[in-house]
C-alpha cells in the first residue's frame, strides 16, 4: 500500500512573554518521514521554518531526558515518539504540565532541582572508609534491589503526569522519591533515617494517592508509583516500631 501521507500538521503551544501575554497555538505543516520522531519534526520547524520556536533537547536517544513535552495530551519524550503512531494528525504539542512555562515549550524545572537534594540522593555512610580499604563490593542481588530506580533520567514526565504535583506543587514528587529509594535500598547506604525526615513528613509520600500515572509514562520503567507505595509500607512499619521503642525519635 502506498503511503498517502506526505505532510503532517503540528499544532504547537507558543508563549512569548515579551510580545504576547497570552499563549497561543501555531500550526506548522511539516514533511512526514516514516522514521521521524516528534522531535525531528520540531527540529525541522526550527531549522527551516521558524528559528524562534523554543524547546529543550539534546541526545535524541532517550538518555538525556531533556525533550519531554506533552504530545496530544500525554507526557512523552519527543525523541522517542514516532509521528507514524500519531497520524493523521494534527499533532498537538504542549509544554510539560505542572511546571511554569518560561517560553514556548520550555518549562522551569527549578522546583525539582530544589527538591532533589532534599532527599539526599547519594550514598551516605555512617563512617567514611579510607581509600585504601578498597571497593565496597555488592552481589548482583544487592544491585538488583535498587537497579530499577537508578535508571531515572530526570526527564520530569512523571511530574507532568502527576495530578497531585500539578495541584499541590509542594509534593516532593515521584522521581525524587524513587531516587531516594534508589539509595535507601542500596546495601552500601546508611542514610535511610535521614531521608525519612523528608519523605515521611508533610508533602512527602503521603500526598500520593497512587494514581499510578507516573509509572505509566516513565520511559525507563522506573515505576516511581511502586517506589512510593513501598516507601509508605516502610515508613508505616517504622512508625509502629517507634511506638514500641519510645526512646527512638519517630
Amino acid at each position: 500500500m502506498e503511503n498517502a501521507v506526505d505532510t503532517v500538521t503540528l499544532k504547537v503551544f507558543r508563549y512569548r512573554p515579551e510580545t504576547a501575554p497570552e499563549p497561543e497555538y501555531e500550526t506548522f505543516e511539516v514533511p512526514y518521514q516514516e522514521d521521524w520522531m516528534v522531535l525531528d519534526a520540531l527540529n525541522h520547524v526550527k531549522d527551516e521554518m521558524d528559528g524562534s520556536l523554543s524547546y529543550r533537547w539534546s541526545c535524541r536517544m532517550g538518555v538525556c531526558g531533556s525533550c519531554g513535552m506533552t504530545v496530544n495530551g500525554e507526557p512523552v519524550l519527543t525523541c522517542a515518539t514516532y509521528i507514524e503512531d500519531l497520524l493523521p494528525g494534527p499533532i498537538r504539542i504542549d509544554p510539560l504540565r505542572g511546571f511554569p512555562v518560561i517560553r514556548d515549550l520550555v518549562g522551569d524545572l527549578g522546583d525539582f532541582m530544589a527538591k532533589l537534594p532534599r532527599v539526599k540522593p547519594w550514598i551516605i555512610r555512617k563512617e567514611e572508609e579510607p581509600l585504601d580499604a578498597g571497593e565496597t563490593l555488592q552481589t548482583p542481588e544487592e544491585v538488583g534491589a535498587f537497579r530499577q530506580y537508578s535508571m531515572c533520567i530526570n526527564c520530569m514526565l512523571c511530574y507532568a503526569a502527576c495530578p497531585i504535583y500539578e495541584m499541590e506543587p509542594d509534593f516532593i514528587g515521584p522521581a525524587a522519591i524513587a531516587l531516594a529509594q534508589r539509595y535507601n535500598l542500596d546495601s552500601r547506604d546508611h542514610g535511610a533515617d535521614e531521608r525519612m525526615d523528608v519523605l515521611s513528613r508533610k508533602h512527602g509520600v503521603w500526598d500520593c494517592t497512587f494514581v499510578g500515572e507516573c509509572s505509566v509514562v516513565c520511559p525507563k520503567d522506573v515505576d516511581p508509583a511502586g517506589a512510593i507505595q513501598r516507601y509508605k509500607v516502610t515508613a508505616t512499619m517504622d512508625w509502629f516500631r517507634s511506638l514500641l521503642r519510645p526512646g527512638r525519635s519517630g
Binding site: 495530551g73 495530578p163 499510578g212
Partner: peptide
C-alpha cells in the same frame, strides 16, 4: 519576564481513560 502557569481544571480527572478509572 513572566512565567506562564497552565491552570488545572476542576475536572482534571476526566483527562484520560486512566484518570477516569482512577
Amino acid at each position: 519576564p513572566k512565567w506562564h502557569r497552565q491552570p488545572t481544571p476542576l475536572t482534571w480527572w476526566t483527562r484520560n481513560r486512566r484518570y477516569r478509572a482512577f
